[in-house]
Design a protein around this nucleic acid. Structure first.
Lengths: 151, 151
DNA sequence: ACTGAAACAGCATGGAA
DNA sequence: TTCCATGCTGTTTCAGT
């Protein structure tokens, strides 16, 4: 993982469909040398996958919210993990420092969607307390990767 | 934007390098029909870009943190926006409801990197108060898209 | 809007340096 | 690890439905 590998990842991050010779021109390497580096970066896990960043609006998911979670005492953590992993609305879920246990990033279609989301979590017995923060606008927007179950 | 378009985006989200005929097989369409749909989705902005999801660890950015920001009263909001957009560590920055003005998601190399980050924000006169939450582990990890200035 | 075929570009591979 | 040469897969375009 040298400076050229970083440059290649950066170029691919901007546009993963750039040709190998294009990238080669930018880093002063032949196309096949670039190909070999990308192959190594992929097998080593430095590049996890090539994907598409979609517009949540176009997919009718205009609401972005962050939800703080206090897990119910004695809640099944393993069950919670697989629940979160499979849930189509949960873009991210992190175990965090501070007064709350988890921070989630969710995409939903409407404010009613947030209520339904929290109700579902409660029904599953995970939730005791939560706090929801809604993003009004984004100065720097993160990528939106459509989850499998979300179709 | 019908169900087939969603399916195509979902398939590309899993692996943007799947061939058009592969995708065509999954949605029962010819390769060129799929190509035409992807072209439309891209020009309409529903697909923003094809990109690579990298491993922050491999790029020496193992620390993920969320930073709440109270903007200094009378701070230049436009300047703050371009500062945030250009800053290599800031993966996301949202204007949010609740007691804080902004929520940022940042990737840094070490805890010292957080301190340096906050000091820089303060020097620029944006920050009055902030609170930092560190992600200990991720139940559902978001994608990491290397920013241009980060190389 | 979709199909199928033909033309083209880009990728993958192997051998040499 | 890199380059070059080449066979081949996948993309793009276009005429037809």
């Amino acid at each position: 993982m040298d400076i050229i590998d970083r440059k290649i990842i950066s170029l691919l991050a901007q546009d993963a469909r750039r040709s190998l010779s294009d990238i080669g021109g930018a880093v002063e390497l032949s196309a096949s040398a670039v190909n070999e580096r990308i192959r190594r970066l992929t097998t080593s896990g430095a590049i996890r996958r090539t994907t598409v960043d979609a517009d949540p609006q176009a997919l009718d998911l205009p609401i972005l919210a962050f939800v703080w979670i206090a897990l119910a005492p004695g809640a099944d953590e393993a069950a919670f993990r697989s629940y979160a992993a499979a849930h189509p609305s949960i873009a991210e879920c992190h175990h965090v420092t501070g007064p709350w246990s988890y921070l989630m990033k969710i995409h939903v279609g409407s404010l009613a969607g947030i209520e339904a989301f929290l109700a579902d979590m409660k029904e599953h017995g995970f939730l005791v307390r939560s706090e929801t923060i809604i993003a009004l606008s984004s100065v720097v927007d993160g990528p939106f990767i459509l989850k499998e179950g979300m179709v």
